Amino acid sequence: MHKFLIGLMWLFAALLVADAARAERIKEIATIAGVRNNQIVGYGIVVGLDGTGDQTTQTPFTVQSMINMLSRMGVNLPPGQTLQLKNVAAVMVTAELPPFARVGQPLDVTVSSIGNAKSLRGGTLILTPLKGADGQVYAMAQGNVVVVGAGATGGGAKATVNHLAAGRIINGATVEREVPLSLAQGDSIQFELKRSDFGTAQRVVEAIERAMGPGVATAIDGRQIQVRLPAQPEARVAFLGRIENLEVTPVELPAKVIVNARTGSVVMNRAVTIEECAVAHGNLSVSVTPQTNVSQPAPLSAGQTVATTNTGIEIKQEERQLVQLKAGANLADVVKALNAVGANPQDLIAILQAMKQSGSLRAELEVI
């Protein structure tokens, strides 16, 4: 009896650990409405390349950009003067402006060639304004481009390691304008679930009310949860910090099978099960092989040498046994059984579609 009680206690402990392992913090399954990143972009020029820049005859915008930049610096070219540039490349500069970013905060930027430059390695980005969707300048970028890769050419041969037409500048931009965002406006705020689910929304409400008191949270729909904020603005940051770190066990995902028809990839979650069914799979291949022979006449005869064609036809059919799949099988059983049939990813797509049509596949089948 004593051993039985000890074993029962270990069982309950294991169940509690398993349940805690599935729990996630609210910050991992939901975001605060309006608190998000903003994309900013700009057009710039990278200089200092070792002869790997744009070919100016094919990218006239690179030459035009250099002429405009030089004119702003007080350098005026003679009329009709053409530039033959090899160390300059036109690029697009992109970055993400995080929420609550302040003036002077550094940002990482990505620099990508838009011309036919061979490599941006060793180049320097000239001061580039980065604009948002509203056309306002939110940051300025400049610095040395870091390209993780290498390339070499010679004797008609070419070798490239990684991608050379794009690079990064760590802390390469400085925030010049802030996006207005305040938590002190209004008496409530909304959390938005990353995946819409009414059950998960209700569990989030219950977790918030257990920690913060009844009536604090209300589920508006399957994605939005409205949370009442404290009246004191200085207490709202700590209040939201506590809520974001509350643990919630999301409702288990629905059974789903994702099929990528272009690559043949098939991904199934653990909730996928099947009804009892039988699957047989075999490949029929027909090969036609023409063989050319030369017909040579006998010596001193009046005949002529001609070419004749003999065609060989061969039909092969792989013999596969009928595999029976038991009802209620889990993901491991499904994969093991389909592998026993000898199905490759493309064949697996056809088998899953047929199982769905027959009603044997207890999951949603989505083809992307």
Rank of each mutant, 00 (worst) to 15 (best):
M355R: 09
T59P: 09
A33L: 12
N37P: 09
Q224H: 15
L11E: 12
S358Q: 15
D347H: 11
R320E: 13
V161D: 00
M355P: 05
L338Y: 12
N76R: 14
I26Q: 06
A280N: 13
N245Q: 12
R72A: 15
T56W: 12
K316M: 08
V146N: 15
A238F: 03
T289F: 00
L284Q: 09
K326I: 11
G199D: 13
G74Y: 08
P60F: 06
R210H: 04
M1P: 11
E96I: 07
I313K: 13
P98N: 04
R210P: 05
V216R: 04
T218I: 14
F61P: 05
I169L: 03
V251P: 15
G241P: 05
K158E: 11
S358I: 04
P98T: 02
L70F: 07
T289S: 03
N283T: 03
V266H: 01
K356L: 00
K316E: 06
E366G: 01
A139V: 00
I258F: 13
V267F: 09
A235P: 05
V93C: 03
K326C: 09
L164I: 01
R262C: 01
V91L: 06
F198G: 09
T289Y: 01
A14S: 09
V17N: 05
G342L: 01
I225R: 05
Q58H: 15
S119R: 10
R36Y: 01
